[in-house]
């Protein structure tokens, strides 16, 4: 059984009525004989936006409502299409559930952080950061950590599969990851503020320190690569700006 959405439990469930029945009632009935349950998306997996403080409707994720049935969480707001298809194809092809991590997500897609596979990672390691969205560093494509990127605490496959047939993903479009597949992400600090120190991620709470350390440790090669990339990029960007200015005159 595939479930989309969280279930409002306040006021006996009246906040979501379908055909005169509460969604909780329908969930209980439909799941009675399910072999396994897939919680599609962040709403079903962790409650998502409606469960953000003060959670007015008592929105509850599926694993807290259904006990005694295997449950796969496929979080993301929205989850990646290829990942959703991958989970279904695995179940249909092998007749078994995919291997899950400690909180029930398929390991194949959720075992790495966005930060681990991010193409801006060399900038992070070299301590090169965007400070504001309109600064020069933003144009150069530096790391978005200081403008709120939650990639270091987000487990998902965005940087690998990307979106829209592999076209891009938020960081590639110049906006930090906001961690939409993580539990409680709406209440984990404002979107454009730097990542909060996170239990177990203490070492990364200060990117400047890590950046400097890593730059020394991994040596000149990485830095040189970053510099070369930037020279190439800034040339392209300068040309684009020139073109833009010219076309602006025509308007």
């Amino acid at each position: 059984m595939c479930v989309e959405g969280s279930v409002p439990t306040e006021a006996e469930g009246v906040y979501c009525m379908i055909g005169g029945r509460t969604s909780l009632d329908i969930l209980k009935e439909v799941s009675a004989n399910a072999k396994a349950v897939i919680a599609w998306g962040s709403c079903a997996s962790n409650g998502c936006v409606q469960s953000a403080k003060p959670n007015p409707t008592g929105a509850t994720p599926i694993h807290k409502l259904l006990k005694g049935v295997p449950l796969i969480k496929v979080p993301g707001c929205p989850p990646i299409g290829e990942v959703m298809a991958g989970v279904l194809v695995h179940i249909i092809t092998f007749g078994t559930l995919p291997e899950l991590d400690g909180i029930g997500r398929p390991k194949a897609f959720y075992s790495k952080r966005v930060h681990d596979t991010c193409y801006r990672r060399p900038f992070y390691d070299a301590g090169l950061f965007v400070e504001t969205f309109d600064d020069d560093n933003a144009k150069k494509g530096y790391c978005l950590y200081k403008v709120g990127c939650k990639g270091p605490t987000t487990y998902n496959a965005c940087a690998v599969t990307k979106w829209n047939n592999g076209t891009s993903y938020p960081i590639q479009s110049g906006h930090g990851c906001f961690g939409c597949s993580e539990e409680n992400y709406w209440d984990a600090g404002a979107l454009y503020l730097r990542n909060q120190p996170f239990p177990g991620f203490g070492i990364e709470s200060d990117a400047d320190k890590v950046g400097v350390g890593a730059a020394i440790a991994t040596g000149v090669g990485l830095a040189a690569h970053a510099v070369m990339t930037n020279i190439r990029k800034s040339k392209i960007i300068n040309e684009l700006i020139k073109e833009g200015k010219e076309s602006e005159k025509d308007l």
């Binding site: 409002p8 906040y15 009525m17 936006v49 409606q50 403080k53 003060p54 007015p56 409707t57 929105a59």
Partner: peptide, 10 residues
């Protein structure tokens, strides 16, 4: 509409 989430309150 038979569903409400209270996003205004959130």
């Amino acid at each position: 509409g038979t569903m409400v989430r209270g996003i205004e309150k959130i």
